[in-house]
């Protein structure tokens, strides 16, 4: 299985290549990708240099253009696709049907990967993407169990990539407007979830209070491990009970399922975290690379220290395990 690694900056890109990535995915410094954070991402020139570095090390570069084109401003996304193709991206990761149609028609030879944001969660959906846009690979949404993935992979004629480590969307990706409901900015339209511009941390006595827009998202006691102020991992009240209504602040970690995923026919494992620093990228990529080669019994030790870097300092296998539902 290939290891697909995140890079938010050229420095992180270099770290990923050094650490043994089979492919690195990244995006341009604008709203054409779903990690449109301040100070993050690549200029055209930075992407050109990064692709050259990757080529020299036989590493592939995937360019994520995985937001939905804003009506009237489609040219921004088309230009990003044109440039990524011209710069030699090995694959484009797309979510918007209109953009997929553009790329499929204009660059029929270009490898087209379907972003997790497109939410292709079953064989008929994937057949549609192959038939309509010539998709070569789909990144599966984090709503499926390993058994679902195995069943699905057997039925379809394209490669499957799944998330193996990092941030965990609790909601089906690309189908969530919680962020924009609270802040006006969404992953689909603006490439941001729970944007920093709307986040406030407030110290209230011993407690750390996180707020998003006009809403309190969480309250952490002294010393309690904290998480991102994302809505799906916030603490809320239902009736008289306060708790994590959707999910605790945790990260995804499916290292224990590596063999099952390989047996299921999965082509590539993806690491989330273009917004994380290069130190994180280096550590996670090299640990997972080792884990992929290691005997099952040795894997736990290899990835144990990754947990400390995770949201809430805990990890979960998420939807890959049926009991998570």
């Amino acid at each position: 299985m290939e290891l697909i690694c995140p890079a938010g900056t050229p420095a992180a890109f270099r770290e990923a290549v050094e650490a043994g990535a089979d492919a690195v995915y990244c995006g341009f410094r604008d709203e054409t990708n779903a990690r449109n954070f301040p100070g993050l991402n690549f200029s055209r020139e930075e992407l050109r240099q990064s692709i050259a570095l990757a080529r020299s090390r036989r590493v592939l570069t995937f360019v994520a253009l995985n937001t939905f084109m804003r009506a009237g401003d489609e040219a921004l996304w088309y230009r990003a696709a044109d440039d990524a193709v011209a710069l030699g991206a090995d694959a484009l990761i797309l979510a918007d049907f209109g953009l997929m149609a553009y790329v499929a028609e204009k660059y029929p030879e270009q490898r087209l990967h379907v972003s997790v944001q497109a939410s292709a969660s079953n064989p008929d959906a994937i057949r549609f993407l192959i038939e309509a846009f010539g998709a070569k690979r789909v990144v599966l949404p984090r709503v499926l169990t390993v058994q679902d993935i195995a069943r699905l992979t057997r039925q379809i004629g394209c490669e499957v990539e799944v998330f193996a480590f990092g941030g965990l969307c609790v909601m089906a990706e690309g189908r969530c407007s919680l962020s924009s409901y609270a802040t006006g900015k969404s992953p689909n339209m603006n490439g941001v979830c729970s944007p920093a511009s709307h986040v406030r941390y407030r110290q209230d006595g011993e407690d750390l209070v996180s707020e998003l827009g006009a809403y309190t998202i969480n309250r952490f006691g002294a010393g309690e491990a904290s998480g991102y102020p994302t809505l799906c991992k916030g603490r809320f009240e239902i009736g008289d009970v306060a708790g994590y209504a959707f999910e605790d602040p945790v990260s995804l970690d499916v290292i224990d399922e590596i063999d099952a995923l390989r047996a299921a026919g999965v082509s590539a494992l993806k690491i989330e975290g273009r917004q994380r620093g290069k130190a994180y990228v280096a550590e996670v990529v090299s640990s997972l690379k080792k884990a992929l080669r290691a005997a099952p019994a040795e894997r736990a030790a290899l990835v144990a220290r990754l947990r400390a870097m995770s949201e809430g300092q805990r990890t979960t296998t998420g939807a890959y395990d049926k009991r998570w539902r």
């Binding site: 010393g223 550590e283 870097m309």
Partner: peptide, 9 residues
């Protein structure tokens, strides 16, 4: 990693 240090408080 800033995020990790933030998570650990």
């Amino acid at each position: 990693d800033a995020d990790a240090l933030f998570f650990s408080r």
